[in-house]
């Protein structure tokens, strides 16, 4: 019995006792702590690295235990923040709150890194391996970067959308279909420039997304800023303000993202304050080496002037 108090005194004197504190916490509590690093947007001006992502990056570099918890959280937050969604279906809104949303965002971004997407008529991307979700989740685990080449083998690209839809419709319907998503496959020359379609088979139903990258393209940044606007078909083709279905697709000539039923709806609204953030530069296909059909970057602008869109 005499040795016990002695041991306690000894351990009090050495620094060993303070060595383990935060490292003793189980991973799920560490994850909760790190979540707070990502939510709070306070950024001290003098420290350029102190964005939530920067702080998280620093945390990940501290030690091995930190990085195993911090890196998945960092990737998740980063890639989900790249996708800004404009959804109207209950099913797709539910999807953004589900745990598979992160993997789906990675899939969108992987499509963005394929060279086929920008060549004129919108291309349709879908996943070839079945069942769909395990294929993406294994990719996400193994290759966290959707830009890596390893993603290519699960993605199929086609221009012949009608045929693919018929083919996919003949397959067994997905389990637990909660809502029949009706697919609007209308193509508009002005709306769809630089966009691509993603078809997803999901327990929530078959969903068609329209994705449009934000910003402009240069040789250095072939995927623009790597950010996407994503619509489902309930929102695409409806007025952003009054939500009515548009007979004739009209789009804000500056951002090419917001859709309006009339001029008055457009500029009388608050849109002019957010327009430039949504993406001032007109999306156009990335320039490709030796491509005889490479578009003149000013073609779009000329086109707009001709249609009086900028007046």
């Amino acid at each position: 019995m005499d040795t016990l108090p002695q041991l306690l005194v000894e351990s009090n004197n050495t620094d060993d006792q303070t060595k383990f504190d935060i490292l003793e916490l189980p991973a799920e509590i560490l994850a909760q702590i790190f979540q707070y690093l990502l939510v709070d947007p306070i950024v001290p001006a003098e420290n350029s690295e102190a964005t939530p992502h920067g702080i998280m990056l620093n945390t990940a570099l501290v030690c091995k235990k930190f990085s195993t918890v911090a890196l998945p959280l960092l990737y998740k937050n980063y890639f989900v923040s790249r996708v800004s969604c404009r959804f109207g279906h209950d099913a797709t809104i539910q999807l953004t709150k589900s745990s598979s949303w992160y993997r789906i965002c990675c899939f969108f971004l992987a499509c963005l890194n394929r060279s086929e997407w920008g060549l004129g008529y919108p291309r349709l991307f879908y996943i070839t391996t079945k069942p769909d979700m395990p294929a993406i989740s294994s990719k996400v685990k193994k290759y966290p970067n959707p830009a890596s080449k390893e993603w290519d083998d699960i993605i199929t690209c086609t221009m012949d959308t009608q045929e693919v839809f018929e083919e996919l419709a003949q397959e067994d319907p997905p389990l637990e279909v909660q809502e029949n998503l009706h697919m609007l496959m209308r193509y508009s020359e002005r709306m769809d420039i630089g966009s691509f379609l993603v078809y997803l088979r999901h327990p929530y139903g078959n969903i068609l997304f329209r994705c449009k990258p934000m910003g402009s393209y240069t040789a250095e940044t072939p995927t623009s800023y790597g950010k996407l606007n994503v619509w489902d078909d309930k929102v695409f083709g409806t007025c952003t303000k009054c939500k009515t279905r548009l007979v004739k697709l009209q789009v804000c000539a500056d951002c090419r993202v917001s859709q309006y039923c009339s001029r008055e709806m457009d500029w009388d609204s608050t849109h002019k304050y957010v327009c430039k953030q949504i993406g001032f530069d007109v999306p156009s296909p990335p320039p490709m080496e030796d491509d005889p059909f490479r578009l003149d970057p000013f073609d779009d602008l000329n086109d707009m002037f001709e249609h009086g869109a900028l007046l």
Partner: peptide, 27 residues
């Protein structure tokens, strides 16, 4: 958890975080 997060946020880089939380060198 919030308080720990707040303390991590006060650090400029990973060296500071290590110092602050006494992360043993072998890790």
């Amino acid at each position: 958890c919030r308080t720990v997060a707040w303390h991590i946020k006060q650090c400029k880089d990973y060296h500071e975080i290590r110092e602050k939380f006494n992360i043993p060198k072998e890790l």
